Amino acid sequence: MSTRARILEAAAELLAESPIADVSTRAVCEAAGVGAPALYRQFGDKEGLLSAVVDHGFEKYLAGKRAAVPSEDPVRDLRNGWDSHVAFALENPSYYRLMYSPTVSGTPAAAVEAHQLLLRVVERCAAAGRLSVSPEVAAQMVMSANTGVALVLITRRELYAPEVSTRVRDAIHAAILVPGGTPVADNGGTASALGAQLRRSPQEKLTAAETGLLQEWLTRLTD
C-alpha cells in the first residue's frame, strides 16, 4: 500500500471513531506510520487531507457503479443499485460516514456523479413507462432514502434489523414505480415516459423554449 493510501485509510478510521468527527494530523501520522512532512507533502494541510479522504471514499463507491452493466430490466437495475449502495456502506463504514457527514463543506464532484448515475437508471425506468413521478423526483427520493438506511445500519446497527433495507427499498419503489402490467395512463407513467423520450431525442421541429415548456408540462403532469 502506498504512503498516500496508508494515510487516507488511517485518517478514515480515526475520523469514523471520533465522536466529534475530527482528528489531529499527529494522530493520523502515528496511525499510518509516517512523519508529518509526508502527510503535508501529500495533502498540503488538514483540510486537504479531509477532502482527499472523502474523495477517496467516493471513488471506491463509484468504481462499482461505473462498472455495473445495464440489464434489459431497468427496475431490476434500480433495485440492485439500492442493494449495492447499502453493501458498500456496510463494507466501508469509515469512508461512508465521512462521505455523507454534515461536516463536509460543499458537494464533492463525485457525489454529483453518483446522483447522475442513479438518474440514468431512473430515466430508463421512465422510458419504459414504469415511473409514476418525474425522474428528478424519483432520483431524489431513492438517493435520500438509500443514504438514510445505509447510515442507520452502520451507526445504529443494534437498533435495526438487516431486512429494514429491503423493506424501505420496496416502499420507496412502490411510491415511484408503476406496477408491471398496470396501465401507465393511470399512474403518471405516460407523461414520465414522454418526458424521458424528449430528453433522449430532442425534437428538431421544436425550439429550445418550446422543448423546455413541454418538458415542464410533462413534469407537472407526472408529479
Rank of each mutant, 00 (worst) to 15 (best):
A21I: 07
A114Q: 06
A139M: 01
L98Q: 06
G189R: 00
A139G: 01
D223E: 14
T25N: 11
G212K: 03
G188Q: 05
V54L: 00
R220L: 01
V168C: 08
Q215S: 15
Q215R: 09
A196Q: 06
G57K: 06
V122S: 02
A52K: 00
L49W: 08
I7W: 05
D55H: 12
H173A: 13
A161Q: 12
A145P: 03
L221E: 07
A87N: 10
L153A: 10
S201N: 15
A208P: 08
F88E: 02
A111M: 09
T190M: 06
T190S: 04
A109R: 15
C125P: 08
E72A: 15
E163T: 11
M1A: 12
W82R: 09
S132D: 10
H85E: 04
Y96N: 06
V149C: 00
L62C: 08
A11K: 00
A68H: 14
L214R: 01
Q197G: 15
P74N: 07
P19E: 13
E204I: 10
L151K: 13
A150M: 05
R6Q: 03
E136Q: 07
E59F: 06
H85C: 01
V28Y: 00
T219D: 04
L39V: 12
E123S: 05
P162Q: 12
R4T: 08
R66S: 08
A27S: 11
F58D: 10
E17Y: 03
E72W: 13
R156W: 05
S192D: 02
E204M: 13
V152A: 07
R4V: 06
L50D: 00
L198V: 02
Y100I: 01
G44Q: 11
S134R: 04
G44L: 11
P179Q: 10
L39N: 04
R200W: 01
D186K: 12
S84V: 13
E9T: 12
H115F: 06
Y61T: 06
A138Q: 01
G64A: 09
A109T: 10
S132C: 14
P179T: 11
P19H: 13
S165D: 05
A110Y: 00
G195I: 00
L15K: 04
P162I: 11
G181Q: 10
G81T: 11
L159M: 08
C29S: 05
D186W: 09
L151P: 07
